[in-house]
Nucleic acid binder design. Structure first.
Lengths: 263, 263
DNA sequence: TTGCTCCTCACGTCACGTGAGGTGGC
DNA sequence: TTGCTCCTCACGTCACGTGAGGTGGC
């Protein structure tokens, strides 16, 4: 008593799926194989339309085919509970996609996509200070690595650096470091610069200042930053070496650890 | 002068993709292979983080990997145009998913998912008339097949049927057809019912009534419905045969076509 | 006879996932 | 020595897409 009249393409077209998809659902056991006519063609009835719409609706909602089969012959309460669950994940997926639209818009322009807002502000301050583009780029890359390796420390370190930049002495020191980038390795000014750097850092530590302690590597990943700085230019590698030597001479703890990490 | 410090897992974790995905992007040529360290490990710099975030952002926005490569080194105007295009499709995808949420909600309850609103109303009217559940089910299946095979005619036919149901005579006829479902094939009342049916249809056609002409198969697919009705029960098959015979006797055009389609 | 729909394998696709087997620093 | 990360094949997965070769009614 189950009249079967539709061909597979009529069924597929009326529901809005491909013929191949219908056959696939047969193979997966989601849609029962209908009777065949004299030519061996599948012939579908209205129930097949209903079944196929259910499958399509669930599949389009992101339900894996393996989960649809059991769902179709689940008890009503179980079914509605599952629907509610599926709807929740659908809703979060929609939220995710809206978030992705925002991130996509950031692609066209600046640094907001891969740097947090406070780092972007810091870089803007440096540019406003007249720091060269090359130096800002080095600074930017340092923060990207920092975020990759010590993400939980970024906020604190940025705040410390921005606070320090209010001190005219630190600003002059910062600019000097930028200028030292392409000094000759043997340049005697490197020794002086290193001495000033170490003095400044230790003074601030002693004063219990907000500026984080870059002279020790208590925190995993600081070695990565030391290595980065050493690799930017030969002068900076030399500068780094002198700083390390000075800290060792002063009996500063754990600096050897940093130099170990610095392969 | 390109310091490389991050390992592949540091890179992957900081961007939020899997290590396998990074290797896959290398293989697809999306992300340049970085230098290796002494152990043969890949070592990444800050630029790799930036590149990978770009790839991830585009991939998550639904851009196929094959399209991302060319996009990454496209001219700025071309790039922004492509972004706008991608955003449009993303937006329509979001709209689609919202539509899918609505359809998912329909899954839990009634017939709204696979029947248009006017058909649902018609079925409700029949139930209110006291038509048996079995008959309503047969009616429903008929409309599902109708929608599959003659979608553009559904609205008109539903309107015609609902209009006809306002006529008490047609209502009695309709109920009689429902009752005839499980009559014996040889039941003499079938002849009478068929005669009444044909008379009613021809009268309404002559009056230029809204009720569509189910006695001809001008429209592709009517044969499917004839076949469906014939297959519901033996009595209905018989009823159908008598109706056809009567129409032939009356010299009604094209009824032979209908009987051809009715394999 | 040509064109269209249907049929059954069976391999291809897309973006990775998932072992399999091995190396290298702590 | 154990544990962890990294390496390179290479096959697996998911939901079909896409021919390949053949049949059947108009």
């Amino acid at each position: 008593m189950k009249p079967s009249t539709l061909t597979i393409s009529q069924l597929a077209a009326s529901v809005g799926v491909t013929v191949r998809a219908v056959r696939h659902y047969h193979a997966r056991g989601l849609l029962p194989e209908p009777a065949r006519d004299d030519s061996g063609y599948r012939r579908y009835n209205a129930q097949a339309v209903v079944d196929l719409i259910r499958i399509k609706t669930l599949a389009e909602a992101g339900v894996p085919l393996a989960r649809i089969g059991p769902l179709l012959d689940a008890a009503p309460e179980e079914f509605t509970a599952a629907i509610a669950d599926i709807d929740r994940t659908l809703r979060t997926t929609i939220r995710d996609m809206q978030e992705r639209r925002r991130r996509l818009a950031d692609l066209a322009e600046g640094e907001g996509l891969f740097l947090s807002a406070d780092v972007v502000e810091l870089l803007d301050e440096l540019r406003a200070m007249g720091v060269s583009n090359a130096s800002v780029q080095i600074e930017r890359d340092g923060w990207i690595l920092m975020a990759a390796v010590l993400p939980e420390a970024v906020t604190e370190w940025v705040a410390g650096k921005r606070a320090a930049l209010e001190d005219p002495f630190f600003r002059r020191l910062y600019v000097a470091c930028g200028e030292s980038l392409d000094w000759d390795i043997g340049d005697p000014r490197l020794e002086a610069l290193a001495a000033t750097l170490v003095d400044f850092a230790l003074q601030h530590q002693a004063a219990g200042n907000a500026q984080p302690d870059w002279t020790s590597d208590d925190q995993v990943g600081v070695g990565v930053l030391w290595a980065y700085i050493s690799d930017v230019s030969p002068a900076w590698r030399r500068l780094n070496e002198i700083v390390e030597q000075r800290l060792r001479d002063l009996g500063h703890p754990r600096v050897s650890g940093a130099s170990q990490q610095d392969r």
